[in-house]
């Protein structure tokens, strides 16, 4: 299927098709809409690699435009997950620029167009690559034509099984933190997680935690993980901590240390404390595992590599999971 066959189907010239697909005003709106509709029906897609070459022709005055990768956000800029993603976006931007791409951030929360129109708007901008940022993803993109794009997701979400996902290696980070706390002499290590963590992440953290608890005959295996709600008062947690007489605490993400102070806990005096995924700039007092620039860098390498080989999403096959290891950072919450 190329422009020529599309032109034959529509009974117009190739030039008309070309103008119409670029939404050029030289063609009347009725004809433009007709040709676009026909193109969709026949499954015609512009080869954006080819389009990018056109701008290099000597008779074309338009300068080549810089290739763009879109970063999609489900939630608005001030939402917690969008904010948490900012350090990774910064390192992604820096890395992807070295490949010659620029970045366009797109927020989907107040978008009122259909997925087909949204996909078309990306095509119109010549965007082939999409990065899905952190967010509480709805089913908004359920019917999105993934196969028309090259896509990498920055977390283990369930948006579409064919998408490649990149994530921190939560299993190895939990393993490392547990080992560090054990080496410090901790015997009764508790686990606390936010109650909204993605299902797969939860399973990996809980699995790595229980695996370690079981691996030593003398370890305690009857401490249930504690699931924490961002707005809850500290007394429920304090009760859990006392009941199991913990001497160390492992947290998935950073939790305001005031929460623990309210529960009567100070680290490291009352217990050792380590964070599995330190997700800010890492300048706080917490000990734990931090990703620094790795996630953004691997995101950039992966999407640039996929674009280079023109690998668009294959809806029939399952996407890969790429895991990035963090580094241990010794803070002051462990001795």
């Amino acid at each position: 299927m190329n422009m020529k066959t599309l032109a034959e189907h529509c009974g117009v010239s190739i030039a008309t098709v070309s103008y119409a697909l670029r939404d050029d005003k030289r063609i009347s709106e009725t004809v433009r809409l007709h040709i676009r509709k026909k193109a969709r029906e026949l499954g015609y897609r512009t080869n954006s690699l080819g389009s990018s070459l056109v701008a290099y022709r000597q008779d074309v005055r338009q300068r080549p435009t810089q290739s763009t990768v879109a970063v999609l956000f489900e939630n608005p800029p001030h939402a917690r997950r969008t904010v948490l993603f900012q350090p990774h976006l910064a390192s992604f931007r820096q890395s992807i620029e070295r490949y010659g791409y620029k970045v366009e951030e797109i927020y989907l929360d107040n978008m009122e167009i259909t997925t087909a129109e949204f996909a078309q708007s990306l095509h119109d901008k010549g965007i082939r690559g999409i990065v899905l940022a952190w967010g509480l993803w709805s089913t908004r993109l359920k019917d999105f034509p993934w196969n028309e794009f090259t896509v990498v997701s920055a977390e283990r979400n369930e948006i579409h099984p064919a998408l490649d996902r990149i994530s921190m290696n939560h299993f190895s980070a939990t393993d490392e933190c547990f080992l560090r706390l054990s080496t410090l002499g901790a015997k009764r290590i508790g686990l606390i997680c936010h109650d909204d963590l993605p299902l797969r992440v939860k399973k990996n953290i809980v699995g790595a935690y229980l695996m370690n608890a079981h691996s030593n005959e003398h370890s305690i295996t009857d401490i249930p993980p504690y699931f924490y709600n961002l707005a809850e008062p500290a007394d429920h947690f304090a009760k859990w901590f006392k009941q199991y007489r913990l001497d160390a605490l492992l947290s998935h993400r950073l939790i305001d240390l005031n929460f623990f102070h309210k529960a009567g806990l100070h680290f490291p005096e009352d217990a050792h404390y380590a964070v599995i995924e330190i997700d800010d700039d890492g300048t706080g007092p917490e000990s734990g595992v931090t990703l620094n620039e790795e996630l953004g860098r691997v995101l950039a390498d992966t999407i640039a590599g996929k674009l280079h080989y023109d690998e668009s999403v294959d809806p029939a096959s399952e996407g890969n999971l790429i895991l990035v290891d963090g580094h241990w950072k010794a803070g002051t919450t462990t001795n």
Binding site: R98, T302, A304, G305, L323
Partner: peptide, 23 residues
């Protein structure tokens, strides 16, 4: 695909990075 992408990123970046794991 991982090896092909790595060849590509080595063209753009110099210096070693931490290895990653693909499942």
């Amino acid at each position: 695909v991982s090896l092909a992408r790595k060849i590509r990123s080595d063209e753009v970046y110099v210096g070693s990075r931490n290895g990653k794991l693909t499942f």
